[in-house]
Amino acid sequence: LNSVDVIVDATPGDIGATYKKLYESFGRKAVFQGGEEPEVAEVSFNALVNYGDALGKNYVRVVSCNTTGLLRIIYAISRLGKIKRVRGFIVRRAADLKEIKKGPIEGIILDPSKPPSHHALDVNTVIKDLDIITYAVVVPTTLAHIHTLQFVLEGAVSRDEVLDTLANTPRILLVDGGLLKSTAELRELARDLGRPQGDIYENVVWSDSILVRGDEVMLTYAVHQEAIVVPENIDAIRAITRLKERAEDSIKITDETLGIKRWL
């Protein structure tokens, strides 16, 4: 630890907190992951939403894969006007490929049965005053999560406006459900097009899922749980070391380096 500037702690959930005293004893900054409790860090982090809050901090927590996905879409829709409320349903993958002791193998698990799921609470560690409720279930797949969100805005918007803001927001991809209608097809295409390990760093929004009625917006997107927080960790390093003062500058470098939004 004497030869590093920042530690990216990717240990299993709740383990990172046990190492914090070690990092403190060496006077080292650290980036923790979403499996840790928010109290482990000074800031819960998403590059699009609150990059500036992490500038110069010693301990930052990059929120979970699902929360990262939620925050990116919330950020994009907020560019159209003030959000009155968000309601979401999250279909969670049961495990990553290596997690052989996890399940279910058969069945769908309410996670939890009483709302909200922890994802809404985690969003509120970043956007304190947002009215958001999420439900979640766990299903027997390893490939990706799927979210369906409903927004109510303070004013009416058009479908074209929603498509435009999503297309012009970093780390959000639009795809045609007539061509790619499953997480399996998305992951296979990513592998075929040479993405390392088939990684998808972006939220992948099915454009034909977007429904707009006045002030109401609904949409569905996929979250590749193994990859989506990678660019966020890179930006968190730049924020706490103040290598880049502005979010857009860090995001541009990270996205160009990783080829984000350039493969599909």
Rank of each mutant, 00 (worst) to 15 (best):
D131R: 14
T148Y: 05
I73D: 02
D192N: 12
A136V: 14
E36N: 10
I127N: 02
L97S: 09
A17F: 02
D215K: 03
G107A: 07
S64R: 04
I109E: 02
A236L: 09
V205E: 04
K261Q: 01
H118D: 02
L211E: 13
Y23M: 08
A222M: 06
A10C: 15
L264H: 09
V162I: 13
L166N: 06
I74D: 05
Q33G: 14
T18A: 09
I146V: 07
I200N: 01
Q197M: 14
G107Q: 15
E232A: 05
K21I: 06
N50M: 11
G35K: 00
D255H: 12
S3E: 13
P140K: 03
V40L: 01
P140M: 01
N2C: 15
K128S: 07
S117N: 14
E99P: 00
I90C: 08
I146S: 00
N168T: 07
T134F: 08
N2F: 14
I15T: 04
E106S: 14
G13D: 03
I172G: 02
V217P: 08
D5A: 15
D111W: 13
N168H: 11
S117A: 06
V152N: 11
T67N: 08
R187N: 10
I90M: 15
G27Y: 06
P140S: 10
